[in-house]
Design a protein around this nucleic acid. Sequence first.
DNA 1: ATGAAAGCGCTAACAT
DNA 2: ATGTTAGCGCTTTCAT
Lengths: 351, 351
Amino acid sequence: MTTLKEVAKRAGVSVGTVSNVVTGTVPVSSARRERVLAAISELGYQPNHVARSLKLRRTKMLGMVISDITNPFFSQMVRGAEDAALRRNYLLLTFNTDDRAEREKEVISVLRSQRVDGILLVVASEQRRPSHILETIRRGIPVVCLDRLPPGVSVDSVTVDNTGAARDCVQHLLKLGHRKIGIIAGSLSLQTASEGLQGYKEALAEAGIDPRPEWILQGNFRIESGYRLGRQLLTSLDRPTALFISNNLMALGILKALAELDLRCPEDVALATFDELPLMEAFRPHLTAVAQPAYSFGYSGAELLIQRIESKTHAKTPVAIRLPTELKIKESTLGYRFSTRQDCACLLGNS
Amino acid sequence: MTTLKEVAKRAGVSVGTVSNVVTGTVPVSSARRERVLAAISELGYQPNHVARSLKLRRTKMLGMVISDITNPFFSQMVRGAEDAALRRNYLLLTFNTDDRAEREKEVISVLRSQRVDGILLVVASEQRRPSHILETIRRGIPVVCLDRLPPGVSVDSVTVDNTGAARDCVQHLLKLGHRKIGIIAGSLSLQTASEGLQGYKEALAEAGIDPRPEWILQGNFRIESGYRLGRQLLTSLDRPTALFISNNLMALGILKALAELDLRCPEDVALATFDELPLMEAFRPHLTAVAQPAYSFGYSGAELLIQRIESKTHAKTPVAIRLPTELKIKESTLGYRFSTRQDCACLLGNS
DNA sequence: ATGAAAGCGCTAACAT
DNA sequence: ATGTTAGCGCTTTCAT
């Protein structure tokens, strides 16, 4: 690999001059600049970012820790973060944890060894005040948590109001006349999942309905678990007439179960889910969903993180960005108790 | 950040000794090792990978260049590559090009500046003998191309037989009795897309059918383009009875068009697509698809790349790994000309 | 405006 | 087995 020194030799100038041409921070006479530029292109010189990082003690790299890139929610988030990062000339180093706390620990350790300038984190650890995260922050590496917050840690974050969104969604089912509403929640050790369950319970409580324990199921956010729990719930003797599902993948699993059991949606069971995805438009019935701004999670998170990195001001109070969600009502809940199009239109209008 | 030097001072040994403890390449007396280990954990020392990379002139980082991480095919591929890389202690630096050649150039330049040890590349450039790729290889940075091959470049690769897979798939439609078969191809500047079209034409030719230009449409691998072209084709006066679609996202778009136009599948039009995804199991009708081993593309590619990096032997002949595809026949093509379950079962059996 | 030189944190060759 | 040191490629301060 060509080095600054070789370029300098070829152009007949000092390494300092070449560096000044490359970085553009110090003016260089145009005659010399020309010669340097010529030498650079003749030799195909590419600045060594590793050496620069060592010297400057910053890498212009961001660590990104998510649970699984093959989950569309996270791939959107990563794309958002990458787009924001590249605009500011930062690169993204991404890792999957599969929501396993020990993987998260390892990954953060790797990221620190790599000397990333900051970390975007979708926490896996359910543990209170996780030391690896606290320690990272204490060492001056900015961390922005996305979607979920580690309990007991004061840290910048980008989240949505999961409780409120779940409550709105279940209220929508109640308004349609449903009284027997089940929930497929995510793993309750994750904050988002327990918030979703909380919203579900609040909505039922407001309507004066006692939650039925056998209709509250805990999954793991994967297709397979939605399928399995869906079958379980839908084949039970006294099955709910509506289901609230805490994420997109489990919803897909339930659709599969539905098809196998020859149940119609929304006639036999109405379905409402968290997370909306472009590809869900192709599904029939079109699913009622709480749309989460997956891309924005990443984009805003990266912007906030870079701002923290570059402003150096060790802020005392964390910034908490709250992104809006939107309940998008579609066929999977409509049509159940309604016979005329007018009724539906009216309901769509004020929701 | 704590450095080796500080650890050495604390433990009362030389930096060399600390380095030897950390890397484990040279034996250190257990008494001193203990002291070093103690100092490391007291100070929370994390080796500086940047400095190590500069010194060793290798980063243990792999560059990965794909078109778009939000496309499930590529997110699976990235996950495969990451799993293979981590097993060998390499990290993955991923970039999206959106299939734009100039982005690819920029990204590869960044990767070279980062001094990645090798590059996994899903090529975007349709240009012959693209200089940025040739130059990268010439400089001794191993490149493994995934899924597609840049024209005129001798390079390691992991691909599938797109032509053969497309031909098999169209032959399946022909066997069912279809004579009016359309194709939604990808952007024909991409090798995979033109191979798919080639297979389609071969199958028709063997059956003695002349291709109808108005039934050969070119999309761009996105949901929206499948939707648009699907509507176009399905609303035409003389529409095909079966459709071969070159990727998963466009197939989803067509399903959306189908639902809007109130057409049934497979009764009104049979559908067969490239790419199979776990989440497609939830769709009804279940789509007949050529299953591509997306995860394996990444996994095998990363393994091959690392082998190249570590064996240093500048191989003269490129390795070309061919992964198998599998035609998975489902409801979206079956049931069209068959009235009894027996017929279907029989057909499923010998395909 | 330009050159010389120190030093970022590490590894490995060399000396002991 | 352990300590000492050169140098990886770069930026930047200090002279000039």
